[in-house]
Lab assay of single mutants.
Amino acid sequence: MSIQHFRVALIPFFAAFCLPVFAHPETLVKVKDAEDQLGARVGYIELDLNSGKILESFRPEERFPMMSTFKVLLCGAVLSRVDAGQEQLGRRIHYSQNDLVEYSPVTEKHLTDGMTVRELCSAAITMSDNTAANLLLTTIGGPKELTAFLHNMGDHVTRLDRWEPELNEAIPNDERDTTMPAAMATTLRKLLTGELLTLASRQQLIDWMEADKVAGPLLRSALPAGWFIADKSGAGERGSRGIIAALGPDGKPSRIVVIYTTGSQATMDERNRQIAEIGASLIKHW
């Protein structure tokens, strides 16, 4: 067993022997301040990774656009098919120029040779490549099948209805392509620590998230040296922004954090800054 596999296998073990965790309302004060600064709703939840206990939450059962955070769930569904012998990570998928959609920095470079399922998941999570996500959605049967996968996990809230990039439209009061912070946090925890996926697939999923290259201005910008984070960000229309993450000190994750916002007129930089400040408060009061 590799060191990384050992780390993920012992996530519940280490967490069980940690000192009790206590909620700190100071972080919620910052979440509410972010709402004021952005002029928009902000949803927040913080779960203990081992027990699933909610440590703090704000608007945990209000719907927010998922945006690209759905790509972690998508690759979880792909990995479940791999575990069941219905898919192979090494299978190569070929596609054409007509398949390319807006923001496809990886797939646009491989029109000639195609990409493997493993490479597509890596591109979808680490670079948020939209064509990679659409190609992977095709392998599982489309958005409705991802929703069905989530329902089978016990998540009857999260739903995907459309493809990239239309799913980022974020129309107010439109339930399409949305989740709730509580539902997303619980589902992410199941994917990373539950028995739904094999140990190898859980490790692969967290490795992809740990290698995320496009979430630097968010929670990662607030992390002290030595902290662990595996995350996936999302951005959408109407001032929408979000991030889902597993993080913790001492090089291992111990909490799940989900943050979503929508309806702001603020710039992307300002949305990023507010999420980073929430992260800084979380870490300060850990």
Results as ranks from 00 to 15, higher is better:
residue 197 L to K: 07
residue 107 T to A: 07
residue 37 Q to A: 06
residue 124 A to H: 02
residue 30 K to P: 02
residue 193 T to W: 09
residue 80 S to E: 06
residue 248 G to M: 00
residue 268 M to H: 11
residue 133 A to I: 03
residue 235 A to H: 03
residue 91 R to T: 13
residue 65 P to I: 03
residue 250 D to R: 07
residue 200 A to H: 09
residue 63 R to E: 11
residue 241 R to N: 04
residue 180 M to V: 09
residue 163 W to L: 08
residue 272 N to D: 15
residue 92 R to N: 11
residue 145 E to F: 12
residue 132 A to N: 01
residue 182 A to H: 11
residue 253 P to V: 11
residue 31 V to P: 02
residue 199 L to C: 13
residue 124 A to L: 04
residue 96 S to K: 09
residue 115 M to D: 02
residue 273 R to F: 10
residue 95 Y to T: 04
residue 58 F to P: 01
residue 230 A to E: 01
residue 226 G to I: 02
residue 43 G to V: 01
residue 157 V to R: 08
residue 175 E to K: 14
residue 188 L to R: 00
residue 230 A to L: 05
residue 36 D to M: 14
residue 124 A to R: 02
residue 185 A to P: 00
residue 273 R to I: 15
residue 197 L to V: 05
residue 106 V to H: 15
residue 253 P to H: 08
residue 47 L to H: 03
residue 180 M to Q: 09
residue 177 D to I: 02
residue 40 A to C: 10
residue 32 K to C: 09
residue 95 Y to D: 02
residue 72 V to H: 00
residue 218 L to Q: 03
residue 166 E to D: 14
residue 63 R to G: 04
residue 121 C to L: 07
residue 73 L to I: 06
residue 199 L to E: 11
residue 136 L to R: 02
residue 250 D to E: 09
residue 252 K to M: 10
residue 96 S to D: 08
residue 278 I to R: 02
residue 227 W to Q: 01
residue 227 W to G: 01
residue 48 D to T: 05
residue 153 M to F: 08
residue 139 T to D: 15
residue 49 L to T: 11
residue 244 I to V: 14
residue 137 L to Q: 05
residue 77 A to G: 07
residue 248 G to Q: 01
residue 223 L to M: 09
residue 112 T to C: 10
residue 227 W to D: 00
residue 29 V to N: 10
residue 86 Q to A: 09
residue 154 G to L: 05
residue 186 T to W: 11
residue 66 M to W: 00
residue 129 D to G: 01
residue 59 R to S: 05
residue 96 S to W: 09
residue 215 A to N: 05
residue 263 G to S: 13
residue 150 L to H: 05
residue 148 A to P: 09
residue 113 D to C: 11
residue 246 A to P: 01
residue 105 P to Q: 12
residue 32 K to W: 15
residue 101 V to K: 11
residue 267 T to L: 09
residue 186 T to V: 14
residue 197 L to Q: 05
residue 90 G to Y: 08
residue 205 L to A: 03
residue 284 K to E: 13
residue 45 I to E: 04
residue 187 T to Q: 05
residue 248 G to R: 02
residue 224 P to K: 05
residue 142 G to E: 08
residue 29 V to A: 11
residue 259 I to W: 04
residue 170 A to N: 07
residue 98 N to D: 07
residue 60 P to M: 13
residue 195 E to N: 08
residue 237 E to L: 12
residue 259 I to H: 00
residue 251 G to C: 10
residue 63 R to P: 10
residue 50 N to W: 12
residue 33 D to R: 08
residue 263 G to R: 13
residue 258 V to M: 04
residue 26 E to H: 15
residue 108 E to N: 15
residue 58 F to G: 05
residue 117 V to D: 02
residue 173 N to S: 11
residue 272 N to I: 04
residue 217 P to V: 13
residue 173 N to Y: 13
residue 222 A to S: 08
residue 276 A to I: 09
residue 25 P to Q: 14
residue 31 V to Y: 00
